[in-house]
Amino acid sequence: MRYLLLLALCAVLIILLVGCDEMTHQPRYQAAGPGRLFPDGKAMQAPPAGAVAQDDPARAAALDRRPAMSAALLARGRQRYDIYCSPCHDVAGTGHGAVPARGFPAPPSLHEPRLVQAPSRYFVEVITSGHGVMYSYADRVAPADRWAIAAYIRALQLRRDAPADALEATDRAKLYGAKLGGAKLDGGPP
């Protein structure tokens, strides 16, 4: 009898030990995992048609309104541009990124007159809906960040195309005074 009890205790312990693994793999859905409950087999479900998320109006407003230019906006735009745009458009905006170098159709330079004259909203719209072979980035770049990128594109264009004479006197002195390996600066940068 005593042995039987001991055996039963061991069995219970083993069953409990098996339970330990249940803590590691709990019977719950993971964010990007499968979900057998739903017809499409995904745990993550798209909102039903016509649903309006709580932050949708804020997103729409952010997309609609151009934020005021600021150093912070440019810094954010530069960071987002380098992440999402530079693989194709390259960090200077000339369209010679690493992806076109591997055979992707090269995008136009952001410095061509058509794009220099285009309003900032145009860049926001292209990021939102895509253009030609460029896919939409609406799922990757938040509305406010699209305006930040557009602002940074403006800075890129200005940096390349603005004449040195447009700089303030102190900045101009700094530019001409800069030691660039003996290179002589005449006009704007190359």
């Binding site: 591997r102 072979v133 896919y135 990757r140």
Partner: peptide, 10 residues
């Protein structure tokens, strides 16, 4: 969609 951003062409 993200993969195909490049691999629609490459």
């Amino acid at each position: 969609h993200t993969c195909m951003t490049c691999h629609s062409q490459l």
